[in-house]
Design a protein around this nucleic acid. Structure first.
Lengths: 343, 343
DNA sequence: CTGTTAGCGCTTTCAC
DNA sequence: GTGAAAGCGCTAACAG
């Protein structure tokens, strides 16, 4: 396609080439191609034909230079797994009718230096906004306020209340999880959470603790914390069942922990959900849909979170920056076989 | 920062602003900032100072327009999980000393229409190259040859031999897996693979089948195929152990399958690795490092694959396009507790 | 309706 | 050493 001078891939076709081929001026070609209505139908046809035959692709870079905005957004992440960032990316892509915007994904790998580096690069490329995605719901250091484009923090909120932050409602999730177990008829419950240093562990647990007061159920033991591993889930379940053999429901801090809990219950010959109901958190499908039985869990609606983040960016673009603060987005219950009998 | 006319975020500082502040021409300011040597040290200092005090960020968009290249690469993926694409992205970022290049990540979600849409958008943004990442090692339809920038297919190769494709050496991985089991003293082996419609299932299995001929070990049963789930791993193990109680090693088609196999072995009271050694494939850490015992597995070196893809792009940029064909990149054995006794 | 003109922000000859 | 001028590809007035 196009010319073929020195470089292996030739020079791309320009609007000038199209105009020449159609025998019109560049300005007219531009109008024809962009659907402006001050151009004769016949002329437009000629331009369109020329553009097609030359497989003309308009140069968005030039367009962006002129317009003062590029139609790009930077996604700055520390999520090495991609577990959070991919759904958030998808949500962001959706928020602008596919293809309007393109997303630069930058992986800072938990390194502040690298993050600054990427931030600078993104600004240099004149992104229209930045979404900072963390891999935990604990507040993270603000990127600062001397950034000339809107910034939204997703999943991990900023520690500066002036920033705009979106994070899942872990507290509400804890409530929902507990309410579901109670609705399933469970009365003697326990909590196995993750690393107590994480806000997620605290918030989810707090939600469950608060919610139980409104029910006739009770916790047979204080919440257990350690880390987010399956191993801990296994160990915790053994501990709990040893001390309280009559437990009939366990709220877990994550799907990983829940998988461990399921393993131990199986080892101990307890049927799930008949003897003990188990609920996880995250809806990490590779874990939640492969267990025996499949895991009932709380889904953080990350794709919606991505949508919302993108909307905040674009809202802030024309109007004033969205007012700061941490917004907690609703999560949702996903019911599978670990809490109700499947038929 | 910068001026503050109408838009909420003001107009960005331009080179002109810096030049004015430093009392020099735009041309001189440019030279000073870019380390050209035709500028007096004193002048350079003044320009640098002005740039800093105005927190000037050069506009890479304008620069790209002039240079004819943007320093961006498009990553077009169908990998909804992000399991493959994130390591590949990291490898690509590394290949160009961090920050030289930025990557547009586009998720086509397995939809050809959306893929074409994204492809067009990327070309419109004048990316310097495109990496197409699939979520399986089966050949995928070529994006075509009328693309004006280099394209490299990663993980999923193109079905057109003229394209440049990089994919993990699954066959070699199968060999390595088997050789490891034999090196661990196993002699009565079996293969539990995944969906037989996948190239990965066939290639890995073939590698193991070929490799065993060079050893004194044997397969006690024909390879088993079904799907990539844990459930299938559990069922297959039950079947195998029922028919061949003396099995002492199982080559699995994926970590998921291996997890299922481990579960059944545990249910049957077989010790791993003492009675039966198990090896997985993929090194999907959430699975492989959380099992009992942890999984020995084959890692596809995706980060290196990303590096290599980026290098192909940039090689092709100046010189002729890299010669086409599918290149199989080496994989590596990761030894954990499912094949050797840990101390 | 169409073409001319003037830039967007920057780099690069090429005079001075 | 420094600056004026041209121009990357495109759009947006403004004349004609």
């Amino acid at each position: 396609m196009a010319g073929n001078e020195t470089s292996p891939y030739g020079r791309a076709t320009t609007l000038g080439d199209v105009a020449k081929a159609a025998g019109v001026s560049i300005a007219t070609a531009s109008k024809a191609l962009n659907g402006r209505d001050q151009v004769a139908p016949a002329t437009r046809q000629r331009v369109l034909a020329a553009a097609k035959s030359l497989s003309f692709t308009p140069n968005e870079v030039a367009r962006g230079l002129l317009a003062g905005k590029t139609g790009t957004v930077g996604l700055l992440t520390n999520d090495l797994e991609g577990r959070f960032v991919i759904p958030i990316l998808m949500g962001a892509e959706d928020a602008f009718g596919a293809g309007e915007i393109n997303v630069f994904l930058c992986d800072a790998r938990g390194d502040t230096i690298r993050e600054q580096h990427h931030l600078r690069a993104l600004l240099t490329r004149r992104v229209d906004g930045i979404i900072a995605v963390g891999d935990a719901t604990d507040p993270r250091p603000s990127l600062g306020h001397d950034i000339p484009v809107p910034v939204v923090y997703a999943y991990a909120p900023s520690d500066d209340p002036r920033d705009v932050s979106l994070t899942p409602d872990n507290y509400g999730g804890g409530r929902i999880a507990l309410e579901h177990l109670v609705a399933c008829g469970r009365r003697r419950l326990a909590i196995v959470s993750g690393d107590p240093g994480f806000a997620a562990a605290q918030d989810r647990t707090r939600g469950a603790l608060d919610a139980i007061r409104e029910t006739s159920a009770e916790f047979v033991a204080a919440p257990l914390f350690s880390d987010w591993s399956e191993r801990w889930g296994r160990d915790a379940a053994a501990l709990l069942l040893g001390q309280h053999p009559d437990i009939d429901g366990i709220v877990c801090g994550s799907d990983q922990i829940a998988r461990g809990v399921l393993d131990t219950l199986r080892d101990l010959g307890r049927d799930v959900p008949t003897d003990v109901a188990v609920i996880g958190f995250d809806n990490w499908e590779i874990l939640s849909t492969n267990s025996r039985p499949e895991l009932t869990t709380i889904d953080a609606n990350l794709q919606q979170l991505g949508r919302a983040a993108a909307q905040r960016i674009f809202g802030a673009l024309d109007k004033a920056p969205a007012s700061g603060g941490v917004e907690h987005l609703p999560v949702r219950l996903v019911i599978r076989g670990s809490t109700i009998e499947r038929r």
